[in-house]
């Protein structure tokens, strides 16, 4: 009987120890995330904890580095983590770039499930889960720079803190729908600029690769000869066909050669559409005088000329 009691107490002890160990593991995650609010979702399970744990390492490693790639982790794994072109970085309200994989969707953010939570990094370098229920999260502590309805961007008070939970800014004033729409519009605009800079960088890389191949490119790029179009009356015109073949403007060979920008021209990642077009035109211009004029225009437009 005593043995039975001993066994029973031992079993209880083991069970309590096990449960304590489990709690410790959870609290470790919570402490690393900077006073993470306890998830209320019943869907939280050991498997979801482990999955979010693995995401945290990925997210921390990407968002902590300024040269993060922003390629989804699954895709990086698929590509063997190599040969991926520069990806589209995203700027949070504090000006920090973070990868798209660490940005939860709006719908995810409203689901109180840690499975949908996404680990981000706040301004202090703390890792936080941004996908938890906003009702249970402290905005000052879960500042991951994410865009969500509950954490509208553009409301930073200078320190890069994103606030505006429950439709109130840091001063506590209520926002109208149009104000919120304006903020979203600005966010969209910023996204365009980021995208333009990214695409421009990628095109520059692609074109420099193209230039490196040399002039023995495909006839597809060089055009010319019999591959040129002609107009319908010229087809039936007989003897005059050959001349007409080389005339159409659209048949001119497309020059893929680009010219490097002058030393004072920055990378262009933050260029808007007009600046990007000016930049592309200048880089593609073979006439040095015209090219320089285009660069001057670019400087004037982007404010480089004024600064200098």
């Amino acid at each position: 009987m005593n043995n039975l009691k001993c066994d029973f107490f031992a079993a209880v002890l083991v069970a309590v120890s096990m449960s304590m160990l489990g709690c410790q593991s959870t609290s470790q995650n919570a402490s690393s995330s900077g006073s993470l609010p306890k998830p209320t979702s019943p869907s939280v399970s050991s498997s979801s904890s482990s999955s979010s744990g693995s995401m945290s390492s990925s997210s921390a490693s990407t968002s902590g580095s300024p040269s993060q790639t922003g390629i989804p982790a699954a895709r990086q794994a698929q590509n063997g983590g190599a040969s991926a072109p520069a990806s589209l970085p995203q700027i949070n309200q504090g000006g920090q770039r973070r990868g798209p994989e660490s940005q939860p969707s709006r719908r995810e953010a409203t689901q109180p499930s840690i499975q949908n939570g996404d680990m981000g990094q706040d301004n202090d370098g703390n890792i936080s889960i941004s996908g938890v229920d906003s009702a249970n999260s402290d905005p000052k502590q879960s500042n991951s720079g994410d865009y969500t309805l509950d954490r509208l961007p553009g409301l930073d008070t200078g320190g890069g803190n994103v606030v505006a939970n429950s439709g109130r800014d840091s001063q506590g004033g209520a926002m109208t729908s149009s104000e919120r729409a304006a903020i979203l519009d600005r966010e969209l605009q910023r996204g365009y600029e980021e995208f333009d800079g990214f695409i421009l960088g990628e095109r520059e890389r692609a074109q420099s690769r193209n230039n490196a191949i040399g002039p023995s490119g495909s006839q597809a790029s060089s055009g010319g000869g019999q591959g040129l179009p002609q107009t319908l009356p010229q087809v039936s015109a007989g003897a005059g066909d050959v001349e007409s073949l080389s005339r159409p403007v659209s048949s001119e060979p497309r020059s893929t050669e680009t010219f490097a920008p002058p030393a004072d021209i920055p990378s262009g990642r933050d260029d808007d559409v007009v600046a990007r077009q000016l930049r592309e035109a200048a880089m593609a211009e073979s006439d040095p005088e015209l090219r320089e004029a285009l660069w001057d225009e670019y400087r004037n437009y982007t404010g480089l000329g004024i600064d200098n």
């Binding site: 390629i71 989804p72 895709r75 072109p85 589209l88 798209p100 994989e101 996204g191 995208f195």
Partner: peptide
């Protein structure tokens, strides 16, 4: 890779 990265950006724009 480029398509995937662009699609990520589109997804954010969709939400906005």
């Amino acid at each position: 890779t480029l398509s995937g990265t662009v699609e990520e950006q589109y997804e954010q724009w969709r939400e906005i």
